[in-house]
Amino acid sequence: MSARFKVGAWLMPQHTSVERLRAAWREADRRGVDSIWVWDHFFPLTGDPDGTHFEGWTLLSAMAVETSHAEIGVLVTDHDYRNPDLLADMARTVDHLSGGRLVLGLGAGWIERDYAEYGYEFRSGRERAEALAGYVERVKARLAKLNPPPLRDIPLLIGGDGKRVALRTVARHADAWNTVVWRFEDGNQTLDEWCARTDRDPAEIERTCFLTAPEHLDDVERLVAAGARHIIMQLGDPFDLEPVDRLMSLSRKAAA
Rank of each mutant, 00 (worst) to 15 (best):
D40H: 14
G227F: 04
A91S: 13
D85E: 10
H79M: 07
H173N: 11
L87C: 05
M248S: 06
A226G: 11
E204M: 07
P214S: 13
L132S: 00
W39M: 10
P150E: 13
I36N: 00
P149H: 04
K6T: 06
R164K: 15
G162P: 02
R101V: 14
M12D: 00
V18L: 15
D78S: 06
D240H: 12
D153G: 15
A256W: 07
R229W: 03
T52C: 03
D240T: 08
D175L: 05
R30Y: 05
G236W: 06
D85Y: 08
H216N: 05
A64F: 07
S61Y: 08
R142A: 14
V224R: 01
L151C: 11
I231P: 00
H53R: 04
D237G: 07
A70E: 04
N178E: 06
D114E: 09
L146N: 08
M63C: 09
F5S: 02
E55D: 10
N147S: 15
G105Q: 03
G100D: 11
G107T: 02
G187V: 01
S251M: 13
A108D: 00
W10Q: 02
L75V: 08
L167F: 07
L21C: 06
E121N: 12
A144K: 14
G32E: 11
A62W: 15
L167T: 00
V103F: 03
K163W: 13
I205V: 14
D95Q: 10
R229K: 14
R183V: 04
A196I: 05
V18H: 14
Q234I: 02
T198C: 13
F5R: 02
A70N: 11
P44F: 03
